[in-house]
Design a protein around this nucleic acid. Structure first.
Lengths: 202, 202
DNA sequence: ATTGTTAGCAAGTGATTACTTACATAATAT
DNA sequence: ATATTATGTAAGTAATCACTTGCTAACAAT
């Protein structure tokens, strides 16, 4: 009658993926303080104890998600930076990839900022620092190329430009989290890019 | 020998101010998850029960801090918007006031973002939404004046410019929280302003 | 077939949380 | 002086947290 009543036994790789997905889903739709191991287990459809078969601690789950960002988003961004196309096109691809990744993984930014806020965990903190610095480094690489190619100005600090850049995806997340509208900023990347490019123009 | 050993009885207005100050201090220097009523009481130097003499709940303390932002920062910003000086000067004053307020109240931004992250409280959430929208409104007012005066371009959406603007203070806070360096961004306002103004130029 | 390993659950664990209760004393009003 | 109110504390409370324990059954290797 109900073939899905009993939990199916699954290999740890599958369960880990389910757990990480449930973490992001709970954070985005219910908020961080609903992310208890109890709720997490219920969302995956397993018992609380089973979570600890696959992860040694709740913290380990978050660290694993950070690794996914590094091997997912950051790898994609690195590939764009190294493309043999004009700096302007790379900038657009980089920014739009960045934005679409955040929209597809809506809990990620909140999770990262929660760690900024709680900040008592040195390893999580430095993991986040790595991610932000790597992203800034990628934009700076592209901008340096644009300056060398003579299309962009060199009168601003690359660090400040990086700060301004990162503010855009961060603000997008804050606003969709506050409004909880999923659909709105689909064209966010195309809308914001002209503003950012104007700063770079000679 | 030790005249400060026993806690002095204080009027509720004084205690409320001490409690709010301790909240921001704990958040900035120890992180959000150290903000328990136990730690809070210890920081103020009173017993845990006394906190609940002055505030009905922990949540009420946070709501009171939100009110302080409204009657402090937002009032100051409103006064700047209404000044009879060129839009360019008002923009600089508004932005630098915004930045210095955040540097003087270092726990504020983390507290606000924690609420974005936890977001299960409708009243806190809408209080934060009010603050962000008011700030965006103020910049938009100044920019509209600059456009009317013919010094700035009207080719970008005011909403998008507002998003870009707010990203700057937000990123500043993220970076000082991650690096925990207090001194660094004293000139943040003066450094970032030229980048932002370039977008507005005709 | 036997054995070892992996994935599962129910029912705990102690620690911590925000908050309450009962009672005491200081300040104020009458 | 006396009564009232405001501020204080110590010692609770029930609920929740991340995590553990003891046991079972599914699966894989030999």
């Amino acid at each position: 009658m109900n073939p899905e009543k009993k939990t199916q036994r699954q290999p740890t790789a599958v369960r880990k993926a389910q757990i990480k997905e449930a973490v992001l889903s709970i954070i985005f739709s219910q908020g961080l303080d609903q992310l208890s191991t109890r709720n997490l287990a219920k969302a995956v459809g397993i018992s609380e104890g089973t979570i600890f078969r696959h992860y040694a601690s709740k913290r380990d789950i978050l660290l694993d998600i950070l690794e996914d960002v590094k091997s997912g988003l950051l790898k994609d961004m690195a590939a764009i930076v190294q493309k043999e196309i004009p700096a302007q096109e790379r900038l657009e691809q980089l920014f739009c990839k960045h934005i679409s990744y955040l929209l597809e993984n809506k809990g990620i930014t909140i999770l990262l900022f929660a760690e900024v806020a709680h900040l008592n965990d040195a390893e999580l903190k430095s993991g986040l620092n790595d991610i932000l610095n790597t992203q800034i480094q990628y934009i700076q690489n592209i901008i340096e190329d644009g300056i060398s190619a003579g299309i962009w100005t060199d009168k601003f600090s690359l660090d400040d430009i990086g700060t301004l850049y990162l503010g855009m995806p961060v603000m997008m997340n804050i606003r969709i989290t506050l409004s909880q509208e999923e659909a709105a900023p689909l064209n966010f990347c195309k809308r914001m890019l002209p503003l950012f490019e104007k700063i770079l123009k000679k």
